[in-house]
């Protein structure tokens, strides 16, 4: 391809060249290497990843709100300045004037993740064991059935917490993705994004030291 072969002309007067002229192709190869590396890296790394979320049906106003077991509920309120506030259970109407304190934590591995793992120990261990078995080859499954098996483990679980994620208006989108990601990391079976209530806004504002902008209690 790159070698040029000169045909000898008849006559025999000229002295025939013994070797075909060689073109030094090293710079070309260098350039091609660079281009290939560039294209390979850009095409392989450009694909962003996606995290799937499923929202429930929009709630109709005439339907009663679903009831939860408060003993398993963990409320996670995403606060301003990358802080998370948590409290367990729920706030009863008689506590509105004396709101329970919030526990402050953050998005690091020692913060909210520790809290969630503490609550979700049994299930997280089951999932981790299962993943370990798949990795070491004790169980051979296709990636899809691994996912569905984990989903099944989560479905039958009745020990883990029910996490209600509430975002205060000062939080941002990154906080929301982070907390959803933590749910995946810790293998929480039940979690949902819910609207923040007025008393939770008040609790966050007290804890963060912001002058209250929350609406007062609705008239009885």
């Amino acid at each position: 391809m790159a070698e040029i072969i000169q045909e000898e002309k008849g006559g025999g007067k000229k002295k025939a060249k013994k070797h075909a002229p060689h073109i030094d192709m090293t710079p070309m190869v260098d350039l091609m290497c660079l281009l290939i590396t560039f294209f390979m890296l850009t095409s392989a790394l450009s694909k962003p990843k996606i995290m799937q979320i499923i929202l429930p049906d929009a709630q109709k106003s005439n339907e009663p709100a679903p009831r939860f077991l408060t003993s398993r509920t963990l409320n996670v309120v995403l606060g301003p300045d990358n802080k998370i506030y948590t409290y367990a259970g729920s706030v009863k109407p008689e506590e509105y004037n004396n709101l329970p304190p919030l526990t402050e934590t953050n998005y690091s591995a020692t913060g909210i993740r520790q809290t969630l793992l503490d609550k979700n120990r049994t299930l997280a261990k089951k999932i981790a064991d299962f993943k370990e078995q798949v990795l070491t080859g004790k169980i051979v499954l296709s990636p899809d059935s691994v996912l569905s098996s984990i989903a099944k483990l989560k479905k039958v679980d009745d020990t883990g917490p029910l996490v209600l994620i509430k975002a205060y208006k000062g939080s941002n989108y990154g906080n929301m993705v982070d907390i959803l990601d933590e749910m995946n990391i810790c293998g929480i079976a039940l979690y949902m994004l819910v609207d923040i209530t007025w008393y939770e806004e008040k609790m966050v504002e007290t804890a963060a030291g912001i002058t209250s902008t929350a609406k007062a209690a609705p008239a009885k």
Binding site: I50, Q52, I53, D57, L180
Partner: peptide
């Protein structure tokens, strides 16, 4: 949600994190 799109994807960049069993 109002327009019945209940399932959607959030575009994120990948960051590998693993929790170790010892921690659990």
């Amino acid at each position: 949600q109002d327009y019945k799109v209940k399932q959607f994807n959030l575009i994120t960049s990948l960051e590998a994190t693993k929790i170790n069993i010892a921690e659990i």
